[in-house]
């Protein structure tokens, strides 16, 4: 065969290898927190309507939706922060590790499920005391220096504060205070970290630090984050739930929610058509 004929023939002999589409399927034992038919009321107002949602181990799950859609209400019910609201009532069940959180000691629940709030709220005490306060209350008085260094490193704050551990935590910048609050939550050795709009009071640089931290921390902890910032949800989470008027409209792998949502309401919300 001539070289020309060989070249021409090669046009028609290209093998095509088809790949199966990738799918993420997690077995049920990876569920850490499970909400089952949960409805939450403040007085007569139904803030959360019959929601069932599984939170997967060592994954970041984002809850998004417009103001008043019930996302923070559900988040705060996971570690019983709503116990302090007198008109609060919940039906259905939230399980943590298979146990009904409402029938478990709230102190135990909160030591296993830490929380970071919208605004940094360090205690008016030293950085050291902020971190060791919780463990001391729970009777952990051993190796506190090691604990402080460990959690401050995990919160990416150690290098910035190691020489002033006994200065007031409230003297730190907003971004540093939020990382101190995260370190404080980590000091209790939780499984799950709940974050209620943790970056809404922070500047872009501090926001970026927290987002980087979430990406690292989810290798070790399960994270649930409520956020108004959809780009943030897209960047940091593995799963996303979209809430609207107390109902969970859609829950899926984050990539699917932001590229091909199944529900029109989700699509309209994330593309800015409403909300």
């Amino acid at each position: 065969m001539t070289l020309l004929a060989h070249d021409l023939k090669s046009y028609f002999h290209t093998e095509i290898v088809l790949k199966e589409p990738e799918q993420i399927v997690l077995p049920p034992e990876h569920v850490v927190v499970s909400a089952k038919d949960v409805s939450i009321f403040y007085g007569k107002k139904e803030a959360v309507k019959n929601i069932s949602l599984d939170i997967y181990k060592k994954k970041a799950t984002a809850i998004i939706g417009p103001s008043g859609c019930g996302k923070s209400t559900l988040l705060r019910s996971i570690n019983r922060m709503n116990d302090f609201v007198s008109s609060f009532k919940m039906t259905g069940q939230i399980q943590y590790g298979g146990r009904d959180v409402m029938k478990t000691d709230p102190m135990l629940i909160r030591s296993q499920i830490g929380m970071v709030f919208q605004r940094p709220n360090p205690f008016p005490k030293s950085i050291f005391d902020n971190i060791t306060w919780g463990p001391k209350i729970h009777g952990k008085n051993q190796n506190l220096e090691e604990l402080v260094e460990d959690v401050l490193r995990k919160a990416a704050l150690w290098d910035e504060v190691k020489d002033r551990l006994h200065e007031l935590g409230t003297n730190l910048s907003g971004g540093q205070q939020q990382r101190l609050c995260l370190a404080r939550a980590l000091a209790m050795g939780p499984d799950v970290i709940l974050m209620d709009e943790p970056c809404s009071a922070l500047d872009p640089k501090s926001t970026s630090r927290i987002e980087e931290l979430i990406s690292v921390l989810k290798n070790e902890y399960t994270i649930v984050i409520v956020t108004h910032n959809m780009q943030q949800a897209a960047r940091v989470s593995d799963y996303t739930a979209f809430f609207y008027e107390g109902e969970m409209v859609e829950f899926d792998v984050t990539q699917n929610i932001f590229t091909r949502p199944q529900n029109k309401q989700t699509e309209d919300y994330i593309t800015g058509r409403f909300g």
Binding site: M230, A234, F258, T259, R260, P261, T266, E267, I270, T271
Partner: peptide
């Protein structure tokens, strides 16, 4: 605009 969903597609 950092579009998502059908705008991104």
């Amino acid at each position: 605009h950092q579009p998502v969903a059908h705008d991104l597609r």
